[in-house]
Protein backbone atom coordinates (compact mmCIF):
# COMPACT_ATOMS: atom_id res chain seq x y z
CA UNK A 1 0.00 0.00 0.00
CA UNK A 2 1.36 3.41 -1.06
CA UNK A 3 0.16 6.59 0.52
CA UNK A 4 1.06 10.29 0.70
CA UNK A 5 2.40 11.51 4.04
CA UNK A 6 1.88 14.91 5.66
CA UNK A 7 4.01 14.99 8.84
CA UNK A 8 3.09 18.55 9.78
CA UNK A 9 5.36 20.75 11.88
CA UNK A 10 5.20 18.80 15.15
CA UNK A 11 6.45 15.52 13.72
CA UNK A 12 9.58 17.31 12.56
CA UNK A 13 10.29 18.65 16.06
CA UNK A 14 8.51 18.23 19.41
CA UNK A 15 6.80 15.02 18.29
CA UNK A 16 9.72 13.48 16.47
CA UNK A 17 9.21 10.21 18.36
CA UNK A 18 5.81 10.00 16.67
CA UNK A 19 7.53 10.22 13.28
CA UNK A 20 10.30 7.82 14.34
CA UNK A 21 7.85 5.18 15.50
CA UNK A 22 5.78 5.59 12.35
CA UNK A 23 8.95 5.14 10.31
CA UNK A 24 9.72 1.76 11.88
CA UNK A 25 6.23 0.25 11.82
CA UNK A 26 5.24 1.01 8.23
CA UNK A 27 7.73 -1.50 6.76
CA UNK A 28 6.50 -4.56 8.69
CA UNK A 29 2.90 -3.52 7.95
CA UNK A 30 3.61 -3.25 4.19
CA UNK A 31 2.77 0.44 3.94
CA UNK A 32 4.91 2.84 1.94
CA UNK A 33 4.59 6.47 2.98
CA UNK A 34 5.87 9.26 0.74
CA UNK A 35 6.29 12.68 2.29
CA UNK A 36 4.54 15.36 0.27
CA UNK A 37 7.13 17.56 -1.31
CA UNK A 38 7.22 21.20 -0.09
CA UNK A 39 4.25 20.95 2.26
CA UNK A 40 3.50 23.95 4.47
CA UNK A 41 1.98 24.27 7.95
CA UNK A 42 -1.78 23.56 8.14
CA UNK A 43 -2.28 26.82 10.06
CA UNK A 44 -3.70 24.95 13.07
CA UNK A 45 -5.95 26.91 15.44
CA UNK A 46 -4.34 30.27 14.86
CA UNK A 47 -5.39 30.40 11.21
CA UNK A 48 -9.01 29.28 11.56
CA UNK A 49 -9.57 31.31 14.73
CA UNK A 50 -8.59 34.54 13.01
CA UNK A 51 -9.29 34.13 9.27
CA UNK A 52 -11.61 31.41 8.05
CA UNK A 53 -10.38 31.40 4.47
CA UNK A 54 -6.74 31.17 5.55
CA UNK A 55 -7.63 28.22 7.78
CA UNK A 56 -8.94 26.44 4.71
CA UNK A 57 -6.48 27.69 2.07
CA UNK A 58 -3.28 26.59 3.84
CA UNK A 59 -4.32 22.92 4.13
CA UNK A 60 -5.96 23.09 0.68
CA UNK A 61 -2.54 23.82 -0.83
CA UNK A 62 -1.27 20.58 0.72
CA UNK A 63 -4.24 18.68 -0.74
CA UNK A 64 -3.38 20.18 -4.13
CA UNK A 65 0.32 19.24 -3.86
CA UNK A 66 -0.59 15.70 -2.85
CA UNK A 67 -2.83 15.31 -5.88
CA UNK A 68 -0.17 16.80 -8.18
CA UNK A 69 2.33 14.31 -6.74
CA UNK A 70 0.01 11.40 -7.54
CA UNK A 71 -1.52 10.62 -4.16
CA UNK A 72 -5.15 9.73 -3.58
CA UNK A 73 -4.76 9.52 0.17
CA UNK A 74 -2.69 11.56 2.61
CA UNK A 75 -1.75 10.15 5.98
CA UNK A 76 -1.87 12.91 8.62
CA UNK A 77 -0.72 11.40 11.94
CA UNK A 78 -1.27 14.67 13.84
CA UNK A 79 -4.94 14.94 14.79
CA UNK A 80 -4.91 18.71 14.34
CA UNK A 81 -3.39 18.47 10.85
CA UNK A 82 -5.88 15.72 9.97
CA UNK A 83 -8.71 17.95 11.11
CA UNK A 84 -7.55 20.96 9.07
CA UNK A 85 -7.00 18.86 5.92
CA UNK A 86 -10.45 17.32 6.37
CA UNK A 87 -12.01 20.75 6.92
CA UNK A 88 -10.41 22.00 3.71
CA UNK A 89 -11.53 18.90 1.80
CA UNK A 90 -15.08 19.36 3.02
CA UNK A 91 -15.20 23.10 2.39
CA UNK A 92 -13.98 22.68 -1.17
CA UNK A 93 -16.31 19.75 -1.90
CA UNK A 94 -19.48 21.13 -0.32
CA UNK A 95 -19.33 24.87 -0.73
CA UNK A 96 -18.62 26.07 -4.26
CA UNK A 97 -18.13 29.70 -3.19
CA UNK A 98 -15.43 28.76 -0.67
CA UNK A 99 -13.92 26.30 -3.14
CA UNK A 100 -13.57 29.05 -5.74
CA UNK A 101 -12.10 31.51 -3.22
CA UNK A 102 -9.62 28.87 -2.06
CA UNK A 103 -8.43 27.95 -5.55
CA UNK A 104 -8.04 31.62 -6.35
CA UNK A 105 -6.00 32.17 -3.18
CA UNK A 106 -3.68 29.19 -3.69
CA UNK A 107 -3.47 29.51 -7.47
CA UNK A 108 -3.88 25.74 -7.90
CA UNK A 109 -6.64 23.25 -8.46
CA UNK A 110 -7.32 21.43 -5.18
CA UNK A 111 -7.69 18.00 -6.78
CA UNK A 112 -9.25 15.01 -5.06
CA UNK A 113 -6.74 13.69 -2.50
CA UNK A 114 -8.32 12.76 0.83
CA UNK A 115 -6.75 12.81 4.31
CA UNK A 116 -6.72 9.79 6.60
CA UNK A 117 -5.75 9.70 10.27
CA UNK A 118 -3.24 7.23 11.67
CA UNK A 119 -5.90 5.77 13.97
CA UNK A 120 -8.09 4.83 11.03
CA UNK A 121 -5.15 3.50 9.03
CA UNK A 122 -3.96 1.32 11.91
CA UNK A 123 -7.51 0.14 12.66
CA UNK A 124 -7.79 -0.99 9.04
CA UNK A 125 -4.43 -2.74 9.43
CA UNK A 126 -5.36 -4.33 12.78
CA UNK A 127 -5.46 -7.91 11.39
CA UNK A 128 -1.95 -7.40 10.07
CA UNK A 129 -0.76 -5.97 13.40
CA UNK A 130 -2.12 -9.07 15.12
CA UNK A 131 -0.48 -11.36 12.59
CA UNK A 132 2.92 -9.62 12.74
CA UNK A 133 3.01 -9.11 16.52
CA UNK A 134 6.18 -10.74 17.80
CA UNK A 135 5.74 -9.63 21.34
CA UNK A 136 2.09 -9.46 22.30
CA UNK A 137 1.63 -6.93 25.07
CA UNK A 138 -0.40 -9.19 27.36
CA UNK A 139 -1.20 -7.79 30.81
CA UNK A 140 -0.57 -4.19 29.75
CA UNK A 141 -3.59 -2.00 30.53
CA UNK A 142 -4.06 0.88 28.14
CA UNK A 143 -6.25 3.98 28.34
CA UNK A 144 -7.06 5.01 24.75
CA UNK A 145 -7.33 8.79 24.60
CA UNK A 146 -9.02 10.23 21.49
CA UNK A 147 -9.38 13.86 22.48
CA UNK A 148 -11.26 16.18 20.15
CA UNK A 149 -10.03 16.47 16.63
CA UNK A 150 -10.21 12.86 15.46
CA UNK A 151 -13.91 12.70 16.26
CA UNK A 152 -15.29 16.24 16.23
CA UNK A 153 -16.90 18.10 14.57
CA UNK A 154 -19.07 15.15 13.51
CA UNK A 155 -18.85 15.93 9.79
CA UNK A 156 -15.04 15.61 9.93
CA UNK A 157 -15.04 12.46 12.07
CA UNK A 158 -12.57 9.95 10.65
CA UNK A 159 -13.51 7.13 13.02
CA UNK A 160 -16.42 4.80 13.58
CA UNK A 161 -18.49 6.93 15.97
CA UNK A 162 -18.57 10.46 17.37
CA UNK A 163 -19.46 9.69 21.00
CA UNK A 164 -18.34 6.06 21.24
CA UNK A 165 -15.48 5.35 18.84
CA UNK A 166 -13.73 1.98 19.12
CA UNK A 167 -10.93 2.17 16.56
CA UNK A 168 -8.08 2.86 18.98
CA UNK A 169 -9.26 0.00 21.17
CA UNK A 170 -9.31 -2.22 18.07
CA UNK A 171 -5.64 -1.42 17.44
CA UNK A 172 -4.72 -1.87 21.11
CA UNK A 173 -6.40 -5.28 21.18
CA UNK A 174 -4.46 -6.27 18.08
CA UNK A 175 -1.23 -5.62 20.00
CA UNK A 176 -2.42 -8.00 22.72
CA UNK A 177 -2.81 -5.23 25.32
CA UNK A 178 -6.03 -4.61 27.24
CA UNK A 179 -7.95 -1.36 26.73
CA UNK A 180 -9.46 -0.18 30.01
CA UNK A 181 -12.92 1.30 30.22
CA UNK A 182 -12.87 4.94 31.35
CA UNK A 183 -14.83 8.17 31.02
CA UNK A 184 -12.57 10.94 29.78
CA UNK A 185 -11.29 9.52 26.52
CA UNK A 186 -13.13 12.12 24.38
CA UNK A 187 -12.55 15.12 26.65
CA UNK A 188 -10.47 18.11 25.63
CA UNK A 189 -6.92 18.36 27.05
CA UNK A 190 -6.73 22.14 26.56
CA UNK A 191 -5.36 21.87 23.05
CA UNK A 192 -3.49 24.87 21.76
CA UNK A 193 -3.53 26.78 25.07
CA UNK A 194 -0.35 25.06 26.20
CA UNK A 195 1.67 28.28 26.08
CA UNK A 196 -0.98 30.96 26.14
CA UNK A 197 -3.23 29.72 28.97
CA UNK A 198 -1.37 26.95 30.73
CA UNK A 199 -3.72 27.01 33.74
CA UNK A 200 -6.60 25.72 31.60
CA UNK A 201 -4.43 22.96 30.17
CA UNK A 202 -3.38 21.86 33.64
CA UNK A 203 -6.97 21.81 34.86
CA UNK A 204 -8.30 19.83 31.90
CA UNK A 205 -5.39 17.44 31.45
CA UNK A 206 -5.37 16.66 35.15
CA UNK A 207 -8.95 15.38 35.03
CA UNK A 208 -8.01 13.13 32.12
CA UNK A 209 -4.91 11.70 33.78
CA UNK A 210 -6.69 11.15 37.10
CA UNK A 211 -9.49 9.30 35.38
CA UNK A 212 -7.05 7.09 33.47
CA UNK A 213 -5.20 6.35 36.68
CA UNK A 214 -8.47 5.57 38.46
CA UNK A 215 -9.31 3.06 35.73
CA UNK A 216 -6.06 1.23 36.42
CA UNK A 217 -4.26 2.15 33.20
CA UNK A 218 -0.51 1.43 32.98
CA UNK A 219 -0.13 3.75 30.06
CA UNK A 220 -2.11 6.37 28.17
CA UNK A 221 -2.08 6.10 24.39
CA UNK A 222 -2.61 9.15 22.15
CA UNK A 223 -2.55 10.05 18.45
CA UNK A 224 -2.00 13.81 18.63
CA UNK A 225 1.21 15.76 19.37
CA UNK A 226 -0.72 18.51 21.12
CA UNK A 227 -2.49 16.05 23.44
CA UNK A 228 0.83 14.34 23.99
CA UNK A 229 2.60 17.50 25.01
CA UNK A 230 -0.22 18.55 27.34
CA UNK A 231 -0.41 15.15 29.05
CA UNK A 232 3.32 14.29 29.08
CA UNK A 233 5.33 17.53 29.20
CA UNK A 234 2.77 19.21 31.50
CA UNK A 235 2.39 16.17 33.75
CA UNK A 236 4.98 17.45 36.22
CA UNK A 237 2.98 20.64 36.76
CA UNK A 238 -0.20 18.57 36.99
CA UNK A 239 1.32 16.20 39.55
CA UNK A 240 1.97 19.14 41.88
CA UNK A 241 -1.75 19.84 41.96
CA UNK A 242 -2.87 16.26 42.18
CA UNK A 243 -3.19 14.16 45.30
CA UNK A 244 -0.80 11.24 45.29
CA UNK A 245 1.17 12.72 42.41
CA UNK A 246 0.97 11.46 38.89
CA UNK A 247 3.21 9.09 36.99
CA UNK A 248 1.53 7.76 33.88
CA UNK A 249 3.59 7.31 30.72
CA UNK A 250 1.91 8.85 27.68
CA UNK A 251 2.88 7.25 24.38
CA UNK A 252 1.78 7.34 20.77
CA UNK A 253 -0.37 4.58 19.31
CA UNK A 254 2.39 3.91 16.75
CA UNK A 255 4.86 3.33 19.59
CA UNK A 256 2.58 0.76 21.19
CA UNK A 257 2.19 -1.01 17.86
CA UNK A 258 5.97 -0.87 17.38
CA UNK A 259 6.54 -2.53 20.75
CA UNK A 260 4.17 -5.35 19.79
CA UNK A 261 5.97 -5.74 16.46
CA UNK A 262 9.15 -6.33 18.47
CA UNK A 263 10.82 -3.03 17.60
CA UNK A 264 13.48 -1.60 19.84
CA UNK A 265 12.23 1.05 22.24
CA UNK A 266 15.04 3.46 21.36
CA UNK A 267 14.18 3.26 17.67
CA UNK A 268 10.57 3.93 18.68
CA UNK A 269 11.62 7.14 20.46
CA UNK A 270 10.35 5.89 23.82
CA UNK A 271 13.27 7.58 25.58
CA UNK A 272 12.17 11.04 24.46
CA UNK A 273 9.18 11.46 26.74
CA UNK A 274 9.17 13.62 29.86
CA UNK A 275 7.40 10.98 31.95
CA UNK A 276 9.76 8.00 31.96
CA UNK A 277 8.55 4.92 30.12
CA UNK A 278 11.19 2.67 31.72
CA UNK A 279 9.04 0.92 34.29
CA UNK A 280 6.27 0.43 31.77
CA UNK A 281 8.66 -1.08 29.24
CA UNK A 282 10.19 -3.39 31.84
CA UNK A 283 6.75 -4.90 32.41
CA UNK A 284 6.38 -5.96 28.80
CA UNK A 285 6.84 -9.68 28.38
CA UNK A 286 9.87 -10.83 26.38
CA UNK A 287 9.65 -11.65 22.71
CA UNK A 288 8.10 -14.89 21.56
CA UNK A 289 10.36 -17.85 21.08
CA UNK A 290 12.85 -17.51 18.26
CA UNK A 291 13.04 -13.71 18.47
CA UNK A 292 16.12 -11.96 19.74
CA UNK A 293 15.41 -9.96 22.84
CA UNK A 294 15.02 -6.24 22.30
CA UNK A 295 16.79 -4.16 24.90
CA UNK A 296 14.63 -3.61 27.95
CA UNK A 297 16.62 -0.91 29.64
CA UNK A 298 15.82 2.65 28.96
CA UNK A 299 17.47 5.86 30.12
Amino acid sequence: MKIGYFPGCSLHATAREYAESLGVITGPLDVEINEIDDWACCGATSAHATNHLLGVALPARTLALAAEQGHEQILAPCAACYSRLAAARRAVDNDPATGAAVEKAIGRSVGTARPISLVRLLAELAPKVREKAKRPLEDIKVACYYGCLLVRPPELNDLDDVEAPTMMETVVKATGAKPVSWNRRLDCCGGGFSLSRTSSVVRLSRTILEDARGAGADVLVVACPMCHSNLDFRQKAIARRSEGGMDIPVIYLSQLVGLALGQDHVALGLGRHFVSTASFISRIPGPREGESAAATEVG
Binding site: H12, A13, T14, A15, R16, D38, W39, A40, N51, H52, L53, L54, A57, L58, R61, A101, K104, A105, I106, G107, G271, R272, H273, F274
Partner: peptide, 29 residues
Protein backbone atom coordinates in the same frame (compact mmCIF):
# COMPACT_ATOMS: atom_id res chain seq x y z
CA UNK B 1 17.93 17.29 25.51
CA UNK B 2 15.23 15.09 24.09
CA UNK B 3 15.93 16.24 20.55
CA UNK B 4 12.52 17.84 20.40
CA UNK B 5 13.47 21.33 19.25
CA UNK B 6 14.97 22.19 15.89
CA UNK B 7 17.64 24.88 16.14
CA UNK B 8 16.99 26.49 12.78
CA UNK B 9 13.80 26.94 10.81
CA UNK B 10 13.33 24.86 7.69
CA UNK B 11 12.22 27.05 4.82
CA UNK B 12 9.97 25.69 2.11
CA UNK B 13 10.49 26.34 -1.61
CA UNK B 14 7.03 27.77 -2.14
CA UNK B 15 7.43 30.51 0.42
CA UNK B 16 6.36 33.21 -2.04
CA UNK B 17 3.23 31.20 -2.64
CA UNK B 18 2.48 31.08 1.10
CA UNK B 19 2.85 34.85 1.32
CA UNK B 20 0.48 35.30 -1.59
CA UNK B 21 -2.03 33.04 0.17
CA UNK B 22 -1.86 35.19 3.31
CA UNK B 23 -2.36 38.34 1.24
CA UNK B 24 -5.26 36.90 -0.71
CA UNK B 25 -7.03 35.67 2.42
CA UNK B 26 -6.58 38.96 4.23
CA UNK B 27 -7.94 40.84 1.22
CA UNK B 28 -10.84 38.41 0.85
CA UNK B 29 -11.79 38.85 4.48
Amino acid sequence: GRGKLALAPSRIQGLEEIRRIFDACTRHE
